[in-house]
Structures are given as C-alpha cells and as structure tokens.
C-alpha cells in the first residue's frame, strides 16, 4: 500500500481540525479540534515508522501524547477559570483586548 494514502488521510484529518478551529466558537470544541490535529500527526508518524521500519517515530508519538496530556491539564484549567468569570466559553466574547 503506498504511503501516499496515509499522507492524504492524515492531511485530511489535519485540515478538518483546522476547519473546526475556524468554524466553532466554543473554546472547548476548538481545543478538541486541535487534539484532532495532533492525532493526524500521530497517525502520519506511525505510518512513516512502518515505512522506515524505525521505532523512533513511535517514541515521538508517545511523547506527543505525553505533552498533549500536560497541555490538556493546563488548557482545561484556563478554560474553567475563564468560565468561572464570564460564565461562557464563547471565544467571541474575548475581545476586550483589541485596540
């Protein structure tokens, strides 16, 4: 099976993630779309790992998951903090900082 299949699948998932970040207003959904982008990357890495027969990219995937977990902890904390203040997770209300 040519590697292109996986490249295209992964790019497709990645772009769906990007579309999601552009289309949604809910911060949590946006964050989820970003997780989707990361998963697209993971998938591609695993495919390359198979192609090169090299475990190092699987290790990389492992680290991406680790980092994502840490990021989720911080990110959800920030979102909850924001929610406690404005009782909404709508990013469109975040425009006090414009000038």
């Amino acid at each position: 099976m040519p590697i292109q299949y996986y490249i295209f699948l992964s790019i497709a998932l990645f772009c769906i993630g990007i579309m999601g970040t552009l289309m949604r207003r809910n911060a949590i959904i946006i964050f989820m779309c970003i997780e989707l982008m990361l998963n697209a990357v993971n998938l591609l890495l695993v495919a390359f790992s198979k192609m090169f027969n090299d475990p190092s990219s699987q290790i990389f995937v492992f680290f991406i998951m680790v980092v994502a977990a840490a990021e989720v902890a911080v990110g959800l904390a920030i979102i909850v903090m924001m929610y406690r203040k404005v009782h909404s997770v709508d990013i469109n209300i975040l425009n006090r900082l414009k000038h």
Binding site: I18, T21, L22, R25, I30, I91, N92, L94, N95, R96, L97, K98, H99
Partner: peptide, 17 residues
C-alpha cells in the same frame, strides 16, 4: 493594519491559515 486586530481568536487563526 490596526483594524485587523479584532480581538477574535477565530479571526487570528483565520489570518494564519
């Protein structure tokens, strides 16, 4: 250019894309 700074995250990401 100042007007581009709308304060909207969605717009910022849009510009990036």
């Amino acid at each position: 250019t100042r007007l581009l700074q709308t304060g909207q995250v969605g717009f910022y990401i849009f510009m990036m894309v």
